[in-house]
Simulated scan of single mutants.
Amino acid sequence: MALLTPEDLENINKQLQAADSAVRRVTGLDIKGVCKDFYGTTPCCEKVGIVPVTSGNGIIGSFSESLHAIAGYFGFDSFVTDMPDVSGYYEAVRNGAQIILMADDNTFLAHNLKNGKIANNQPCTGIIYAEIASRYLKTDSKDVLAVGLGKVGFPGAAHFVNKGFRVYGYDADRELLDKTVSSLGIIPFDPVNPDNPGKFSIIFEATPCADTIPESVISENCVISTPGIPCAISKELQRKYGVELIMEPLGIGTASMLYSVL
């Protein structure tokens, strides 16, 4: 979780409300509704223990408090432990937590102690952002552009492939792109190639870079579903093309994790 900053997490409830509105416009459901429908699960009084972790770069300011707000937003009873690390884990279990949320620099996980299910934030985030985009009500196109094919982008691209979409993929790391083409059968996309298929109504972006989506691929009223920070598209291009932007720093991926372990 090292890419997040306290500034990214400011006004998390307001960010979730804005994301809910965007997801409704795209899918007809809110975030909770998409997660419930996709995973086939519903919260039922599960208690979530949030454990701060000090290893690596340490605790991100307001991260645990943001998780507490997110869990409450989606209907879960949650608490943040007073102690961090192993002591915090022990405290969470002693205080009746059924689901543990905790993160270090490399892994953000949800673990359901009751049924043994465990979820990693990276694939859960990629999959739910892809699922939201795949439900776009204003298009019947089966073409998707996936930009960024790493630990979040690869699961998202795979999800589109599994749902029968024709996926065009790009990553600045050529080795990673070639590996994804080989394993998923996606079509390599070259942003400077004039023979590209043109504009897309569905774009999935999962990189840590700004302005990664070229104007040449953006269609009117397209949906761009991006868990990447910073934003993949400028505000000017959003307004120019009427883009439906699905982007939020933490809550959508966390909801996906929680619903996946119920």
Rank of each mutant, 00 (worst) to 15 (best):
M1D: 11
A2Q: 12
D8T: 08
Q15V: 09
Q17M: 12
A18R: 07
A19P: 01
A19F: 00
A22I: 06
G28M: 05
L29S: 07
I31V: 10
V34D: 06
C44A: 12
E46L: 09
V51K: 04
V53K: 05
S55N: 14
S55L: 15
I60L: 14
G61Y: 12
G61C: 10
G72P: 11
Y73Q: 09
F74Y: 13
G75I: 01
D77P: 08
S78G: 09
M83G: 14
P84C: 11
D85I: 03
G88W: 13
Y89S: 11
A92M: 04
V93P: 06
V93Q: 14
I99C: 07
A103C: 11
D105Q: 09
D105N: 12
L109T: 11
L109F: 05
A110C: 09
N121E: 10
A130K: 01
A130D: 03
I132V: 14
I132F: 04
Y136G: 12
L137M: 13
T139E: 04
K142C: 10
K142G: 11
D143R: 13
G148E: 05
G148S: 07
G150S: 06
A157P: 00
A158H: 03
H159A: 13
H159S: 15
H159G: 10
F160A: 07
V161Q: 06
F165R: 00
V167N: 03
Y168Q: 02
Y168G: 00
G169Q: 04
A172P: 01
R174Y: 13
L176P: 05
V181C: 04
I186A: 05
I186T: 12
V192Q: 15
F204C: 07
T207Q: 07
T207D: 08
P208L: 10
A210D: 15
D211V: 01
T212Y: 02
E215A: 11
S216F: 08
V217H: 00
I218K: 01
C222Q: 02
C231F: 07
E236T: 02
E236N: 09
L237G: 08
R239H: 15
R239D: 15
K240P: 02
Y241T: 01
G242F: 07
E248W: 00
P249R: 09
V261W: 02
